[in-house]
């Protein structure tokens, strides 16, 4: 099931304020903050597409696109 999904992370660096909420609550540790305190995807292959990062982002800076 999970492997048949094509998951794309779209991160708006201009809107991200680096609060770290998405990084903290990602169940698969897919995300981290870079040296500029902006979120980036470090382990995209582990993403299960739960979209909790997208839902919890206060800055509307993450979009997860899933193609089944």
């Amino acid at each position: 099931m999970g492997k048949s999904k094509l998951i794309k992370h779209i991160i708006n660096r201009d809107w991200c304020k680096g609060c770290g909420i998405c990084v903290e609550f990602c169940p698969q540790n897919v995300l981290e903050l870079d040296e500029q305190d902006k979120v980036r995807t470090t382990r995209p292959e582990s993403c299960i597409g739960c979209k909790l990062c997208e839902l919890r982002c206060p800055d509307l800076a993450i979009e997860i696109h899933i193609k089944e």
């Binding site: 304020k17 909420i21 839902l55 509307l60």
Partner: peptide
């Protein structure tokens, strides 16, 4: 949800990690 916002005013003025952004996010959904 981007169709419901005025993108020209983003990034918004709330502090990093402010809960109000999450309320905005949830309400738009």
């Amino acid at each position: 949800i981007k169709d419901y916002i005025r993108e020209r005013f983003f990034p918004h003025m709330w502090c990093p990690g402010c809960g109000h952004g999450i309320v905005l996010n949830g309400m738009l959904r």
